[in-house]
């Protein structure tokens, strides 16, 4: 060990280290400090034993407490499910109309419904229900199968052209492909349909053909019949192409979309929540 030099000015020991003629004074750390440091090391060793710590060739050391962040998440999810169970009971018991009237349930359903909608419905209907060609806009006030809470609930539950035995079905005949109407007649009725929404002129023939073939589903005035899923033809909202060619094509060989039946895929409470949410997207008619 090197001899210890004392700095005469301060009377303090030096460490023996010297830089450019300046000698470092030795101000020793208190012993409790180093013991605290050792205690921390021991604590770390304890941690290795108690918790998952070291990687091994095929995995990692598990720790004697059996803790895992995945297990932690499971517990948290269980706690969430527990805290939600009371709410779920309320949703089971209440009708969609009751939910919409109850402020507390409405707030919960709006938040939960939004989540369910984004996971299950948004791929076709778009976020916020903005729709896409062939997939109805849910954010407007035009409803093919009805925009009342009970109507929406039924559509969600049973679907349209879905697999449920009571699913909503509306099949428009293939007037052109199955040669139910002549080409000229189809042209005339297409013109009439366009004129319903204020686009172009139509002949009286078209009106007659419409009343004979189309009015049963689309209504005498063309405003649609929601009970049978006949869309309103008088507004500017079109599920498919709204141009003259598009209307013609739909009469010739109609396209039909499919909405899955959600009963059995979503639980009752979820269906009710998403119904309330979808109802609100349309402005809550």
């Amino acid at each position: 060990m090197a001899q210890v030099e004392k700095d005469a000015l301060t009377g303090t020991d030096t460490t023996g280290h010297e830089w450019d003629g300046i000698k470092e004074l030795n101000t020793p750390l208190p012993k409790w400090w180093i013991y605290t440091f050792y205690a921390c090391i021991l604590w770390a060793v304890g941690y290795w034993i108690a918790y998952p710590a070291w990687p091994t060739l095929s995995g990692y050391t598990k720790g004697v407490l059996g803790y895992s962040s995945r297990g932690d998440l499971d517990n948290q999810m269980k706690m969430v499910a527990e805290s939600r169970s009371g709410w779920m009971g309320k949703f089971e018991a209440a009708s969609v109309e009751d939910i919409a009237k109850d402020k507390e349930l409405l707030t919960y359903a709006m938040a939960g419904g939004k989540f369910i909608f984004n996971e299950n419905c948004a791929p076709c209907h778009g976020s916020g229900g903005q729709g896409a060609k062939g997939y109805p806009v849910l954010a407007d006030d035009d409803w093919i199968w009805g925009g009342k809470l009970a109507d929406i609930e039924q559509t969600v539950r049973l679907g349209a052209r879905g697999i449920h035995e009571d699913t909503r079905i509306s099949d428009m005949p293939k007037y052109g492909k199955d040669e139910l109407l002549e080409t000229a007649e189809i042209k005339a009725v297409a013109d009439y349909v366009m004129s319903l929404s204020g686009q172009g002129q139509a002949s009286d023939d078209g009106k007659v053909i419409f009343e004979e073939n189309c009015a049963a589903c689309h209504g005498e005035d063309g405003k649609g019949l929601q009970e049978v899923g006949g869309p309103n033809l008088t507004d500017g909202i079109w599920l498919y192409d709204g141009s003259a060619e598009g209307v013609l094509a739909q009469i010739n060989n109609p396209k039909h979309g499919v909405m899955p039946s959600w009963e059995g895929r979503l639980d009752n409470a979820s269906i009710k929540q998403v119904t309330v949410y979808v109802h609100s997207l349309g402005g809550g008619m």
Partner: peptide, 15 residues
């Protein structure tokens, strides 16, 4: 600077 041959450098001091 004074020499103090008996002592060693103290790194940790008792309180």
């Amino acid at each position: 600077i004074k020499q103090n041959p008996e002592e060693k450098t103290i790194r940790y001091a008792d309180r």
